[in-house]
């Protein structure tokens, strides 16, 4: 059997935005139909400044939900919010008003992970990060090592020193993103840490032995990184798992990133002493 698909402009646009991984929030009235507001009504909201598509049934409700949906989208959060029939949100305004419950489904772009240093640990970390849904960029100044052939799993491989890429794209990094510095060479580490600290990135991990770590912290202090900056670094990178192989180390780094987000008290190498590889 074949027939013309139903005309569905909101769904078609939504599907298109999902496929191209552009940020989009879909608001649906799930309870509290009243007047022109019906259960199932949709409003599709994007961050590119375009007018929202569809309507929940009242222009004021549309306006307030669109505003809230953009905030939810920026926080990569989906959930149910309650409104009055004209978009009221404050508790006083909602007294004796019917409540409209709206589900906002956010589709934020994937978080980014930038990895500095084109080494074996990088390939393993890039693989694990891809499993977790990161968009992975591998950076190294050495042309021979920073190749797509060595890192086929990465979304981008850049032959670059740290400073230029932070100058160019550092503004894109936010709380959901991660910078992992695996170079353990002060020539690269120092500018990479400085570049990362100048961004809003949520996680900065720096690899190295305890000895490398101590020297690096000293070097960073010498070039003017303040204590708040040093405290932001997860160094040595990773959880205190006793990881040995590149793959185990990658899991330890990604687990530390998850723990940083959830705020769980899981032992990081940063907070322990003694051998990293037990």
């Amino acid at each position: 059997m074949s027939s013309t698909p139903p005309d569905s402009p909101v769904f078609d646009r939504y599907a298109e935005l999902l496929r191209t991984e552009e940020p989009v929030a879909l608001a649906t009235v799930i309870e509290g139909a009243i007047g022109d507001i019906s259960v199932g009504a949709k409003l599709l909201v994007t961050t590119d400044g375009a007018e929202p598509l569809g309507s929940l049934g009242h222009p004021e409700l549309d306006r307030v939900v669109a505003r809230d949906a953009i905030a939810e989208l920026e926080a990569a959060r989906s959930g149910v919010r309650s409104y009055g029939p004209e978009g009221q949100t404050t508790p006083e305004d909602l007294v004796d008003q019917p409540t409209i419950r709206v589900f906002v489904e956010s589709h934020a772009p994937p978080p980014q992970m930038w990895i500095f240093g084109a080494v074996d640990f990088t390939a393993a970390l890039a693989r694990v990060a891809k499993v977790l849904g990161y968009r992975v960029t591998v950076c190294d100044a050495r042309e021979v090592f920073a190749t797509k052939r060595r890192f086929p799993m990465a979304d981008a491989v850049r032959v670059t020193w740290p400073t230029p890429i932070f100058d160019e794209l550092g503004g894109e990094l936010g709380p959901r993103d991660a910078v992992c510095i695996l170079t353990h060479d002060p020539k690269f580490d120092v500018p990479a840490v400085q570049g990362a600290l100048a961004t809003r990135v949520g996680y900065i991990g720096v690899m190295g032995s305890r000895k490398t770590h101590d020297k690096r912290m000293q070097r960073l202090a010498e070039v003017g990184v303040d204590q708040a900056g040093l405290d932001r670094l997860m160094s040595p990178i990773g959880l205190d798992l006793g990881a040995r192989t590149p793959e185990e180390t990658a899991v330890s780094i990604c687990a530390e990133i998850i723990a940083a987000r959830t705020g769980k008290g899981v032992p990081s190498l940063k907070d322990s002493s003694g051998p990293i590889h037990s």
Binding site: M1, S2, P5, P6, A15, R19, I30, G79, V80
Partner: peptide
Amino acid sequence: LNDIDRWQRAGERIAVARVVD
């Protein structure tokens, strides 16, 4: 999306369930 697309082209009606809370 790929399944939905295939079903829509075949003229099938579709229901969607989403976790809201």
